[in-house]
Amino acid sequence: MDRTHIIGLIATEIRDILPELSDQSIGPDDVMADLGLDSIERSEVVLTVLEKMNLKVPMTRVHGPANIGELADLLANLHSAA
């Protein structure tokens, strides 16, 4: 599963939670907190994307990325290692 595809999955979930972002482009340099998602909503995005990728890893394993691009890279690595 490549980075671009995962960024697409993340963007879809973000727009699902914050419909007001539906017309806004969401890219690798964006930061979820800056887009207006609170900590609960950020975890929701990650949980849903993990589900869609069929990845079963502890949440603490995906903590740390500074932006959406880094999150996608981490998820891609975990996916290829699974």
Partner: peptide
């Protein structure tokens, strides 16, 4: 603390 990490640990 780190609110995101704490939430993730709580969920795990």
């Amino acid at each position: 603390g780190d609110a995101d990490l704490s939430l993730m640990a709580y969920l795990d």
